[in-house]
Design a binder for these strands. Structure first.
Length: 428
DNA sequence: CTCATTTGACCGGA
DNA sequence: TCCGGTCAAATGAG
């Protein structure tokens, strides 16, 4: 399994390079397709990359034309098919190489899924549909966005990426893992009254789809921070986990009450790589898919914001998708997300039109030094994009997303605080 | 004063 | 019974 080192290739740079017909070096390109570390024949990869690049180029065109398409279903469908064709061609080559034996990397092997690349292709399409925004049915968006989810899905086993995926990440300034220091001022445990009534109210939710993300710690100064994924989370618990050196923290969406948003996440440092967090997302973010308008936006912009994982969840992060352990046949274009299919989005999937149009050289601001690696568990993970472009005059959505998701992170104040009034904070 | 975090207790599934 | 997940009182920060 390979991941992007954030300092090497940003999703945006790869995307732009791909859209421009190449330009990034072979090493990085081999990462893009999740190859086996350079053992594949060069010509194969060139062909694959050419196809993938073509797909990106077409996707980029589509994104830039979105405003003009008026969400014309026929036109969009045609464009999607063209993009799909490009990826299908790449998938065919890759599968041919796979079955031809020889030099297929651990990625394919560990994915263990027959037709892994096929699934990848399908998921790319799902992502595209989602990125198209309003033209995508909700289920498609849900299928493509692990953070939006699609209702209770099957639970799958966790896939844990090699801890050395971030090799060298530990060269930071800190001298080692920083344990959270418990509140020293806390008074001795007060006598706890037995909870009254409603004991049955504590109901453990059925484990739905989960998405596990490996994220490098953000190191600011000599401290590490849990990654900022763009959502606002409220911590509600922490547990020492048996066999783990580090406690696991539990978060729920800050807007749980207001929108009944059931999204949660667990954050835990890896034993063998304290600079990497394993973040497991559970549940659906309904707060951003609510019919309640957040802001008055042009329709396309609004849908992009609410449905785009790029803006909503993973802005500015490089994602690599990995499959969960148990494979199930993906159900394409179905309310139930394709289960455990794998996707290897080394690039930031097409973001907002502005991102494509004018984000050259724009780096992530809120999630620097993070390199998430996503493991989908019963949901399709979606790749994150680079930072929103500053050239947002023509694309309000980019501007909004930029403000929304670069201005604040987990637990921090952001525009979200303004959008969600204080009365939704009563979840404790 | 409001809200987020901390943290021990409680609950339920395995 | 164990352990992971959740609750909610206490507490701190702004």
């Amino acid at each position: 399994m390979h991941v992007f080192a954030p300092h090497q290739v940003t999703p945006l740079s790869v995307l732009l390079a791909a859209a421009a017909g190449g330009g990034f070096d072979r090493r990085d390109r081999s990462r893009v397709v999740g190859g086996g570390g350079g053992s594949r024949e060069g010509w194969e990869m060139d062909e694959v990359l050419a196809q993938i690049s073509e797909g990106f180029r077409l996707a980029g065109e589509l994104m830039s034309e979105l405003a003009a398409t008026q969400n014309d279903p026929d036109y969009l469908a045609a464009r999607c098919h063209a993009i799909a064709g490009a990826y299908a061609a790449a998938a065919r080559v890759l599968q041919g190489a796979r079955h031809g034996g020889g030099g297929v990397g651990a990625a394919s092997t560990s994915f263990g899924g027959e037709g892994y690349l096929h699934h990848q292709h399908r998921q790319q399409l799902d992502l595209l549909r989602m990125c198209v925004g309003g033209t995508a049915p909700d289920e498609a968006a849900a299928a493509a966005n692990p953070f939006l989810g699609g209702g209770g899905g099957a639970t799958t086993a966790a896939f844990r990426a090699p801890s050395d995926a971030y090799g060298g990440a530990g060269a930071g300034t800190s001298g080692g893992p920083v344990r959270r220091v418990s509140s020293s001022s806390r008074s001795p445990p007060s006598p706890v009254q037995p909870r009254q009534g409603g004991a049955g109210s504590r109901r453990r939710r059925e484990s739905g789809e989960k998405v596990t993300v490996m994220v490098a710690a953000q190191r600011t100064g000599n401290t590490e921070q849990p990654p900022d994924d763009g959502y606002t989370w409220r911590k509600y618990g922490q547990k020492d986990i048996l066999g783990s050196r580090y406690p696991r923290s539990y978060y729920r969406c800050t807007h749980k009450n207001y929108y009944g948003c059931e999204a949660k996440k667990k954050v835990q440092r890896l034993d063998d790589d304290p600079f990497t967090y394993e973040v497991t997302y559970c549940g659906n973010h309904t707060c951003l898919t609510s019919t309640t308008p957040l802001l008055t936006l042009p329709a396309a912009a609004a849908t992009s914001v609410t449905n785009s994982p790029t803006a909503a969840a993973v802005l500015g992060q490089d994602f690599v998708m990995a499959p969960a352990a148990d494979q199930q046949p993906p159900q394409h274009q179905q309310a139930q997300p394709p289960l455990s299919t794998s996707i290897h989005l080394g690039i930031g999937w097409p973001m907002t039109p502005a991102s494509l149009a004018g984000a050259v050289g724009e780096g992530s601001t809120s999630t620097t030094a993070t390199a998430p690696q996503v493991t989908t568990m019963g949901a399709t993970a979606a790749g994150g994009g680079g930072a929103a472009a500053r050239d947002a005059d023509h694309y309000p959505v980019a501007d909004l997303a930029d403000v929304m998701f670069n201005s604040g992170g987990s637990g921090s104040s952001s525009i979200m605080d303004g959008i969600f009034s204080s009365h939704d904070r009563r979840d404790n």
